[in-house]
Design a protein around this nucleic acid. Structure first.
Lengths: 144, 144
DNA sequence: TCGGACTCGTTCAAATTCGAACGATAGCAG
DNA sequence: CTGCTATCGTTCGAATTTGAACGAGTCCGA
């Protein structure tokens, strides 16, 4: 038998979905001004967070996209000169994706308003003393 | 000047995205056994939560989908006999979407495992004494 | 070293999604 | 009542996303 969700539990679940949707909508809309989709931004942001390139499969696992979807978007970004593909020296099967200088420059333009948006919609709406609780709780959900 | 996000804030942001993605992946995979996409399930679930039909635009606003996307999916569900379109008596522009008996039956089959999944991945991972805090915090984010 | 199982990134066709139209209806100020 | 504006759901073409192949490379036990 399945135990139904209590009102509190249901409300928490809806709040999680609602918060995610809300943030996604706002981010998507903001990115459109820079001709970037959410997926494309995620790729650039992930590449920008480290100094080395990232393999396609590893990248696809981190984002919410299939390998073939990433192949397509990597092509779009490469066509715009924001990203380059390079062969891996370690593993001949692997294609490493790297940011170009143009890609870094675009990321540098897009990131500040993105951070402002996250602050406005997420961080600033949570009581600072609750933030650690929320962070830890959500991290448990995200955990594999 | 944009104030950067602190480590804690950034971790909270990533945790939110991670939690949402994690849940979405698991739900999507589970629904595939019933030949339903996440969007289709959302439509059925929303229709099932009330006894009256819901207008297309109102429905689209609640879900993360455009009006034209909803037109398409409503067509898919109608083709499978899970849903029917009816004219609204109040407003001739409005098309009300209703669950059919088959739609209700399918929803009744899909909901229990869905609830079990939500419990397993979300509710049970959060300390019960923290749940209210998480719920309220996320509700603030979801708020318009 | 061989062979089988796995992972890599890509290709392809099909399914889905989007945004910009559009015709029809509602609501409201004058 | 008459315009004007907004909202309704749909259509259309283009863009994106998916899943199932595939060829190539890696790994590991026999």
């Amino acid at each position: 038998m399945v135990r139904a969700l209590s009102d509190d539990e249901l409300a928490a679940y809806f709040a999680l979905r609602g918060a995610g949707d809300r943030l996604q909508r706002a981010v998507t809309q903001q990115l459109r001004a820079h001709d970037l989709t959410e997926v494309q931004f995620s790729i650039l942001a992930r590449l920008g967070s480290g100094s080395d390139g990232i393999g396609m499969s590893e990248l696809a696992r981190g984002l919410v996209v299939t390998k073939s979807g990433l192949t397509y978007q990597a092509g779009q970004l490469e066509r715009r000169g924001l990203v380059v593909r390079r062969a891996s020296t370690d593993d001949d099967r692997v294609v490493l994706l790297h940011l170009t200088p143009d890609g870094k420059a675009l990321l540098a333009r897009v990131l500040p308003p993105h951070i402002t948006l996250v602050r406005e919609l997420f961080i600033d709406r949570i009581d600072p003393s609750d933030l650690a609780i929320v962070r830890d709780a959500l991290a448990q959900v995200a955990r594999d």
